[in-house]
Design a protein around this nucleic acid. Structure first.
Lengths: 100, 100
DNA sequence: CGTGTAAGGAATTCTGACACG
DNA sequence: CGTGTAAGGAATTCTGACACG
């Protein structure tokens, strides 16, 4: 389930190259709690490929003029939707033994 | 086929943390042509998760006392085996239309 | 609100070399 | 052969702040 995609190993300069977003923007989106990089002992931010995909989506939304707090709200809702779906799926499977 | 696993985005310090190998060792294995990191414009080495797995294997071999040129030879052979298998599989499939 | 920039410091990475073995 | 280390320079990253709007 968690693999390379979620390992936080990419430094901010590389994220800048991969996403085209400025270092300032990347740090700002963290300040607004849209992304959550890890920190090395020294304090350097480390990002995952999943973070990079999130940043790409954020970039798109921003281009459409969507504000950061709205993006954050939407992402939270998307997450809820996903969790609810997972729980329902689990309940259904438990009930009908669809899996295994 | 190529995805996150092969993207060269990890700097040598992080590779050190992930593999336990010293920075000196990581650079040396490149000198011996066991691994091939990419370089950023500035010259910084960038590694993929695949490189990290290769380095882990190298570390195991080295612990067994295997020398770098032997490791290199073995890796080349493993690659040949893999290519031959792929070609045979392709020929067989073309002949018997096993796929799609 | 979102992003640019100059500021100063601390840690990273690079190469070539000497050392030991 | 494989790895450690000190050396000097160049680029990275960090934070807090001022700027514009």
């Amino acid at each position: 389930m968690s693999s390379y995609k979620d390992k936080k190993v990419i430094s901010i300069g590389t994220v800048n190259e991969l996403t085209g977003l400025s270092v300032r923007q990347i740090r700002y989106y963290e300040e607004r709690e849209l992304i959550f990089p890890e920190r090395t002992k020294r304090g350097t931010r480390k990002y995952s490929f999943a973070d990079i995909e999130t940043l790409m989506k954020i970039a798109d939304k921003r281009e459409e003029g969507v504000q950061t707090y709205e993006i954050k709200r939407d992402m939270a809702n998307d997450n809820k939707d996903h969790m609810i779906e997972q729980m329902l799926r689990g309940q259904l499977n438990a009930h009908f033994r669809l899996n295994k």
